[in-house]
Amino acid sequence: MYKIIIILLIISACSWNAFGHGDLERRIHAKTKAIAQEPKNPNLYVERGFLYYQHEEWDHALADYLQAQELGFRAKILYYRMSETYLELYLFKSGLICTQQYLAQDSLDVKIHKLRGELFYKSRAYDEAIYSFEYVIQHSIDLTPENYVTLAEVYAKKGPSQKELILGVIERGLEKLGANVFVLQEQKLNYFKTFNLTKQALAQYDLIINSSTRKEGWYYQKATYLYQQKKFKAAKIHAEAAKQAFEALKPNKQKTKVMIQLLANIHTLLQNLENQ
């Protein structure tokens, strides 16, 4: 009974989502009053639609955008707003149609190409998504690790035959954003493991270990990988290295939940290795 009450409370709480954003709520209210005074002003609908979008009321947002369109609003920003709203509503085809209307006015903006990439990706149109994301990477001034991670993910969706392209994307990211950007180095390691490139994966582990201030976690991960590869001697060396690195930590670092678990894992691994 208690659980049912909890669930009902949670559902009830979720249904109140529309009332949770104090500032947005006030701004929507103010915009609604403005619309009541000027019901034929399309700008007001675009503005309120975006407030609804930020409020995550996608249906209301879209209704306002369509009303603005009905009133003759044709600026590209409207098509961008509609596209991102369609994305949230999982109406990918409609979203893509809007991006085309945007592109008819401005074909160079990387923002719309990124949005098209997301719409294509969600639609499982991977080649088109790749084209869009590549466009973003080639034409953006400032890029983030996420740009490369996402593009590599799309290539990966096409299957392991894309191995060279995937790793090439990550390499391009490291060249552009910096050789030590962690997320990209980690992605590189994961793809090496996915593609069973054991030698490269082990070298990648070493690269991450060498660039880390604290090494206990990465020594353990490498030891585990070596154990999985049945390289027991090397695994033991790295498990011992993990233990030593752990023991060199300050007491307060040793006693965090994660580190307590890590030490237990190291001991378990060492015991497993003793049994080999």
Partner: peptide, 12 residues
Amino acid sequence: KQGEAGGVPSGT
């Protein structure tokens, strides 16, 4: 972005 002020490079 490169961990130049300490910490792990985020790239962003």
